[in-house]
Simulated assay, not measured.
Amino acid sequence: MQEFLANLAQLDRWAPQLLSAVARLALVLVLAWVLNRVSRPLIHRLDEAFGRHPERSEERQRRIQTLLTIVEKVASAAIWTVAVIMGLQVLGVNTAALLTAAGVGGLAFGFGAQNLVRDFISGFFILAEDQIRVGDVAVINGTGGLVQAINPRTTVLRDLNGTVHVFPNGSIQTVSNLTKEWSRYVIDVSVAYKEDVDRVMEVLRSIGQELQEDPEYRPLIVQPLEVLGVDDFGASGVTIKTMITTLPLKQWQVGRELRRRIKKRFDAEGIEIPFPHTSLYWGSASQAFRVQVETGQTDADRVVEEVLRRLGATQAAAESDRPSGGAGA
């Protein structure tokens, strides 16, 4: 009790120090929160500044958006890291020794978490080499979808069914970007063997020209429809390969409209689109089949008939060998 009373007597000496430490700690936290909130609009101001560039394209916009997202996350992590160190200094913790210990511990952690370190390094190179960006359609390790996020450790895809796929950056082996700078749609058009392929290719070029002159689709087309020619002789038709180059992400919209116009134009022109069927060829005109109709007798009936026939023949032979009575008298 006496010790407690003695501490209360010294309250006027250590209370100001405690209040000062709490106030400084609160000030550090408030400043960190304010800086974190202010940094976001400042980073987005950079996006607006780049947006005023007269030559900015959609490709550049997606790249800038991806980089700004990473910068925002890094800035937030840096602000709170500095705030934690300053808070520890306010509380009287030796941060120099703590940082040294953290460095040694981080080195040991790096050896134990090599996959995690590999993910971060791979994520850095994905961004630095501009392999993919947020908003691209890409195929990663055989899985295709829209790139929704590129984080320092993971890359997130969402496929056409709405399924979200998360790939650790270190495990990404192959990346196929379907929408970088421009996109292309390839169509294999199959027609019947009886059709004149030169006429068919001319009709396809006419369809491509009409599509390019359409005000709705003209801004989406980078290069006109190219008819590459006869590409294959299939089981039921001749394949003619065509392709059209569009703006990124617009190849499916233009390609579906092109398919629709090809179907309607072929129907109007009487060009047959074949379907799988089988034809038998004998090498020459086949002759009429020879049909022999048999009675409905069984094997037993035929055996009985044969036995009776032979008995009749034997009996007839015996009667012919018998001598006549009138001739002997």
Rank of each mutant, 00 (worst) to 15 (best):
T242Y: 04
K194H: 15
E181C: 00
E226V: 14
F167E: 02
N169C: 03
E257N: 09
L146Y: 09
T179R: 05
Q114R: 00
L42N: 02
L18F: 01
G123S: 12
P219T: 14
W80Q: 10
W252D: 14
M1W: 04
A268N: 06
D47L: 05
P276S: 10
V175Y: 06
T95E: 06
R265I: 07
R153N: 13
F275C: 05
M243H: 09
D119W: 00
L11Y: 12
D214R: 10
S122Y: 01
F266L: 14
G92L: 06
I244W: 00
L42Q: 04
R63K: 07
T143W: 00
V164W: 05
A21P: 00
L160P: 01
A78R: 02
T100D: 12
S190E: 13
V189Q: 04
V90F: 05
A77K: 08
G328I: 08
E257M: 08
V303D: 11
G103S: 08
N94D: 15
R265L: 02
K264A: 11
Q148A: 10
F289M: 07
K194P: 01
I121C: 11
D196G: 14
A78L: 11
V82H: 04
P152V: 06
L211M: 12
Q2W: 02
T163L: 15
F125W: 15
F233S: 01
T295V: 11
R184E: 04
V230K: 07
V84H: 01
E226Y: 09
A327T: 10
T239K: 10
N36S: 09
V238Q: 07
L8P: 04
Y193C: 07
Q223Y: 10
A6K: 10
R322Y: 02
A49F: 10
Q173I: 12
Q287D: 03
I172Y: 02
D130S: 14
L25K: 00
E294K: 15
G112Q: 03
A149T: 12
N177W: 08
L29F: 10
G106K: 00
M86T: 05
D267V: 12
V156P: 01
V93Q: 04
T100S: 07
R60N: 04
W182M: 02
V137A: 00
E58L: 14
A77H: 05
K263S: 05
V38R: 01
Y193D: 13
V222P: 03
Q173L: 12
E129R: 14
Q17L: 14
W282F: 11
V203S: 02
D188I: 09
L280D: 03
I271E: 01
M1Q: 03
A49M: 11
A192D: 13
T69A: 11
V238L: 05
A316S: 09
R322V: 06
A192L: 13
R40D: 01
R13F: 03
Q223I: 05
Q2I: 03
D198R: 15
T278N: 03
R199N: 15
I64H: 04
A32F: 03
G255W: 01
L67R: 04
A9D: 06
I140N: 00
W14D: 13
L204K: 00
I85A: 04
Q173K: 13
T66E: 02
V139F: 02
Y217I: 12
R60F: 04
V186K: 09
F275W: 14
K73C: 10
L98W: 08
A83E: 08
M86A: 07
A6I: 06
N161G: 14
V254A: 08
F266K: 12
